[in-house]
Design a binder for these strands. Structure first.
Lengths: 347, 347
DNA sequence: CTGAAAGCGCTTACAG
DNA sequence: CTGAAAGCGCTTACAG
């Protein structure tokens, strides 16, 4: 039913290869025939079959985005999808389509990725760190296959990855608090194995030392994994040694901290300032609105896409780096009487 | 480099077509040759090239998910991605891959979709209602192309769509309030052109009438589009005619209503109960936790996938229906002294 | 500047 | 039960 290159050739009185060449803007074809063929194409509403083109050219013009996300991931981990949108944006701009694979519990990431590669189903892979394993790393390496991992894998490898610089975020938080006058700073972190929290803490400590206001060990409290947890930990912290400001490892912690401060009839930021990381829709509707050090994850996705395109051109390239810079969003939880509109300051 | 069907045939001493037949589990091939060929495949680590298979079979085994989502969509409209995960889950279970396209401002949905179809790039389309237009409807119809729209288009058409039943959700909200003893009920809705809010209101009104506690016109206030808006509208409502319970059209409205009730030193639910729609992560951390009528949007995606698979088999099928049922999640904003764990009751 | 031919890696009537 | 041949809709050396 659909018109193919053959009909066009026949109708135009030229060969199939000639039609193909005008399709590909070959400069070898004369202006006259080019025009003739184009007219026929128009007339016949011819549109090249993309799959056939790709097949003949031996590439897919497709990139696969792989993650392992549970049900409700869109609500609990919106970052993942914001990143994906960024990736999609840069890839579709370059003529690539993006396939989304969400691994199920039964699926082994290594097996899935190997199939993808060996069945020639995709030109490149964007891999969320939730879907990385040593086997994956091995498969990717032995096939020398273009890929980029979002997030830093927790083991040494030749994988290419990009991640946000949580260290830097921590230091930005401290610098902001210092600037607005808080010197006695505490840190409430996530679980012991929460690397993100740990890196933020390290950055915060380093910055504090440089500013001469080092964060004392008893002002670092870890293990806050739920709101209630964080509430209890904050309560204890305040009772034992009330700080001027608290850095919360993430929004969950911040919610618990807010509760606890309110429990004790203290006010934010008058008695204690609070700052956290990552901007969620509810960060700005908390009372007071929460100051955060945010990452533009969409931009991170964009960059991942760019890296991957580069790697597909030149597979030898290796990238392991922190890319997207954190941005401070100042709100009322660290500053009194600010306008309620968030004020964004690039660092 | 990668081994193809030819090498296998040669090595096994059979023809390419025979290899193809064992690949496709043809019952015509003798057990002996089948085994022989399988062994060689194993030995050579042969894996069929999926793109070539699909190309020869004249199908793509691919479905495209199209939406028009702005930056920060993952944060502001997580439903979209939760639905997509549902779609991905059912499709990948049936051997289909899912391509994600997020339209940019410059792209016309009609043009993009037409290209997709006419370039034979996909077997079916899942279309978020944000990417629907009359042109799209026309393109889909004239190509008789398998598709399913997520959300009800705002114009009559032959499009296949599924949507949540907001009417039913509204009625569930009222029935719950009635059951737990609230008879004087008010409704605070979104903007005048917010169809979702309108349908919820209609369902609520109908149920109220059936229960003999009809919602009076002065207890219906519309136009709450921001938190501050909703706060002001609630304040006016309470001042003029304090209800026992308020149904909020959505979570934004609910936040404003919470603020306003607190502003006036009233307590939820003791003075006024509040119920809303859709469960967000923060719904349960509000104080008190918010009772909502929720839709399992993941399940909705699952169903969309099933519908589409059916349509790809039988393109004449037409579906326009409400599928996924609302579920009431009772929390403390309508019930005093409940355990803090949400209690889910299927309707 | 143009075309015939081989090729991309499979499938599928058809003949035997 | 097996194989030769044509086909899916293009591209791409190669020859002229």
């Amino acid at each position: 039913m659909p018109v193919s290159i053959h009909e066009v050739a026949q109708e135009a009185g030229v060969s199939v290869s000639t039609v193909s060449k005008v399709l590909n803007h070959s400069p070898l074809i004369s202006e006259a025939t080019t025009q003739k063929v184009r007219n026929i194409m128009e007339q016949l509403h011819y549109r090249p079959n993309l799959r056939a083109q790709n097949f003949a050219r031996q590439k897919t013009h497709n990139v696969t985005f792989i993650a392992r996300a549970e049900k409700n991931a869109a609500f609990n981990n919106p970052h993942l999808f914001e990143i994906m949108c960024g990736v999609e944006n840069t890839l579709s701009g370059k003529g690539y389509s993006l396939t989304f694979i969400n691994l199920t519990k039964e699926q082994d990431e290594g097996t899935v990725i190997e199939s993808l590669i060996v069945q020639k189903n995709t030109d490149g892979i964007v891999l969320h760190v939730s879907a990385v394993s040593k086997k994956v790393s091995g498969v990717l390496a032995s096939n020398n296959f273009p890929h980029i991992v979002i997030g830093r894998p927790d083991f040494e490898s030749e994988l290419c990855w990009i991640d946000t610089n949580n260290n830097l975020s921590g230091s930005i938080a401290v610098k902001h608090l210092f600037q607005v006058g808080y010197h006695h700073i505490a840190y409430i972190g996530g679980g012991k194995d929460d690397l993100i929290s740990l890196h933020r803490l390290q950055g915060a400590q380093k910055a504090a030392e440089e500013l001469g206001i080092s964060i004392s060990p008893e002002d670092v409290r870890q293990g806050a994994v739920t709101i209630e947890n964080a509430r209890a930990i904050t309560e204890q912290l305040i009772r034992e040694d009330q700080p001027e400001a608290i850095i919360c490892a993430n929004n969950t912690v911040a919610l618990g901290t807010f509760h606890s401060i309110r429990d004790q009839a203290l006010t934010i930021p008058d008695n204690i300032a609070v700052i956290s990381f990552d901007d969620y829709p509810y960060s700005r509707i908390m009372e007071p609105a929460l100051t955060v050090v945010n990452i533009d994850v969409y931009d991170m996705g964009t960059q991942a896409g760019i890296m991957l395109l580069r790697k597909m051109k030149q597979p030898s390239l290796q990238v392991q780096s922190y890319t997207t810079l954190p941005v401070l969003i100042v709100r009322n939880s660290t500053i009194k009487n600010t306008a309620s509109e968030p004020m964004s300051t690039p660092i």
